[in-house]
């Protein structure tokens, strides 16, 4: 496979995006129905209008805050539990069927159950937590279990402290697994979090905006809000992966102890 220069790659991506926007525009002109398919120009116009309303920004903040809370708390809990599980085969065995079930269960089932137990306001926190936790836990555990036993023995003989063990022995082996988990779960938590809000309809959320768009058959609103969700999701994915890569780079090369 031939290698593509970075600038050329950006131009190719931009060209491809432009091509599909033109296809979309052409299709919307051909169909000429504001319910079935609105044009990208109409969507951008509606998005511009929404961006000027305080309610829209509040809805974005509401959903972003909750999904991020679910994501971060799932990551923290998963990493801690993976660290404990790595020491105990019994705990790993105990958690395996539970996490397998969580991963296999449809989001909608969780949403309906959660609505019976909790208020819909924090539904997206729980759902994004449930979607992220098993992925981060499984990858992190695999990373910890793959750490070089020889290095751990070396650390024991030399009495290397827990912080240095973590930074220089565990993290270099676990980080690639964690990065892969973050990459997968970040996209998933947005999709499932917003889907949960559409079902639970918490007041003042992005999910409620999508629900209203559905009820009023307002395709322009639906696509404008979807565009915002995609942009926010991509931004967070890039930000988290950038931070994780920076951490990885710091641990590489000529790091001083």
């Amino acid at each position: 496979m031939s290698k593509v220069q970075p600038t050329k790659k950006v131009l190719l991506t931009a060209g491809a995006a432009l091509f599909w926007l033109l296809v979309w525009q052409a299709l919307s002109l051909k169909i000429n129905n504001r319910i079935l398919l609105v044009s990208p120009v109409t969507v951008l116009g509606r998005l511009f209008e929404l961006l000027q309303t305080a309610g829209f920004w509040r809805a974005v903040a509401f959903t972003v805050g909750r999904i991020l809370l679910g994501f971060l708390s799932a990551c923290t809990a998963a990493v801690l539990l993976a660290a404990v599980s790595a020491k105990s085969a019994a705990l790993r065995g105990l958690l395996r069927p539970l996490l397998g079930t969580v991963q296999a269960t449809p989001v909608a089932s969780f949403v309906i159950l959660a609505l019976l137990w909790f208020s819909s306001r924090n539904l997206s926190v729980l759902i994004s937590f449930l979607m992220v936790f098993p992925i981060v836990y499984a990858n992190c555990l695999q990373g910890i279990l793959s750490v070089d036993r020889g290095l751990l023995e070396m650390a024991r003989v030399f009495r290397i402290g827990p912080l240095r063990r973590l930074l220089y022995i565990y993290l270099p082996d676990v980080l690639p697994y964690l990065l892969s988990a973050l990459s997968v779960s970040l996209g998933l938590c947005w999709k499932s979090g917003v889907a949960a809000e559409v079902i639970g309809i918490p007041v003042g959320s992005i999910g409620e905006l999508l629900y209203q768009a559905k009820v009023h058959l307002d395709t322009a609103d639906l696509l404008a809000v979807t565009l915002v969700i995609i942009l926010v999701s991509l931004s967070f994915e890039k930000l988290f992966l950038w931070l994780a890569y920076r951490l990885q780079r710091r641990l590489e090369g000529t790091v001083r102890v």
């Binding site: 290095l151 023995e153 022995i169 641990l251 590489e252 090369g253 000529t254 001083r256 102890v257």
Partner: peptide
């Protein structure tokens, strides 16, 4: 049994 990504001094 060296930490591969650390330099020799580290």
């Amino acid at each position: 049994r060296l930490c591969e990504r650390l330099c020799a001094t580290a």
